[in-house]
Amino acid sequence: MMADDIKKITLPISGMTCATCVESNQKVLRETPGVVRADVNLATEKATVEYDPAAVSPADLIAIIDKAGYSVISEKVTVPVGGMTCASCVERVEKVLRGVDGVISASVNLATEKATVEFAAGSLTISDIRRAIEAAGYTVLMTGDDRPVGDEDVETRMRRQQYKRLQLKVLVGAVLSFLIFIGSFQWFGDLGPLSNPYVLWALATPVQFWVGWQFYAGAFAAARHRTTNMNTLV
């Protein structure tokens, strides 16, 4: 097991009242296969655990603490995720989120385009979740104060803005592609500027790098994680 494989999580524990409680939690955690180190602090009511994610998960650690008669304080948040197109996208977003320190569980729904993340209270912020999702090549709909969109009307409005931008790109791409198509066939005769290959190149550039930029960005993000998705196919 390499040092880089070790992860750390801080779990807020409720129900501890004395040094015996601390010893009890430390004992059950340290005896858990996959746990490298576990320290419990009564003053802060937190357990700091270093563990091998291949052998034990945060959910397992919580179950162990619960079984010992204590409970872990967790928070749950649902964030709207944009840019997902297939099951591969769902799997990658879930994998990235589960790899964030402090995350207990993460599930993504492609139909609703939302990710539900449970994490140890105080261990991370919405910004941490957003950065993880964006690093994977997707977007998170956020309000101006960096909170996830919770109001349905606000979310609908933001998604509508996304669709309008997409419609504009489709329209511009269709018009430019039609002009390129016409100019590429000599049997249409002399079409003036459209017969000039440099003009066709100029028309093709925004189609490739403005209209199609989301596909390049999505494919590149997938490649960084050594995987593929629908963007790669496109």
Score class of each variant (00 low, 15 high):
Gly122Ala: 04
Glu155Met: 14
Ser123Lys: 05
Phe188Leu: 11
Val234Gln: 08
Val207Asp: 06
Asn41Ile: 07
Phe181Gly: 10
Leu124Arg: 01
Met158Cys: 05
Asp52Cys: 02
Lys95Ala: 06
Val90Ala: 06
Ser177Ile: 04
Trp201Ser: 07
Val40Phe: 09
Gly102Phe: 11
Ser127Ile: 14
Gly144Ser: 12
Lys46Asp: 07
Glu155Gln: 15
Pro53Lys: 00
Pro80Thr: 08
Asn229Lys: 03
Ser88Glu: 02
Ala54Pro: 00
Thr116Asn: 06
Thr44Ile: 06
Thr112Leu: 04
Gly122Asp: 05
Asn229Phe: 02
Asp101Glu: 15
Thr205Gly: 00
Glu31Phe: 02
Pro12Trp: 01
Leu97Asp: 10
Gly183Ile: 08
Val81Lys: 07
Ala204Ile: 05
Thr228Ser: 09
Leu166Ile: 04
Val36Ser: 06
Thr17Ile: 00
Ser127Glu: 15
Glu94Leu: 01
Ser184Tyr: 09
Asp190Lys: 11
Lys164Val: 13
Trp201Met: 10
Leu97Pro: 03
Gly99Ile: 00
Leu191Trp: 08
Met1Val: 00
Val172Pro: 00
Val35Met: 03
Phe188Glu: 14
Ala221Ser: 15
Ser105Arg: 13
Lys169Gly: 15
Tyr138Glu: 07
Arg30Met: 10
Lys76Ile: 08
Val117Pro: 12
Thr48Pro: 08
Phe215Gly: 11
Thr112Gly: 02
Trp201Phe: 13
Glu91Met: 08
Asp39Leu: 09
Leu191Arg: 10
Thr139Asp: 15
Gly144Glu: 13
Ile129Pro: 03
Phe181Asn: 09
Leu141Ala: 15
Ala3Asn: 10
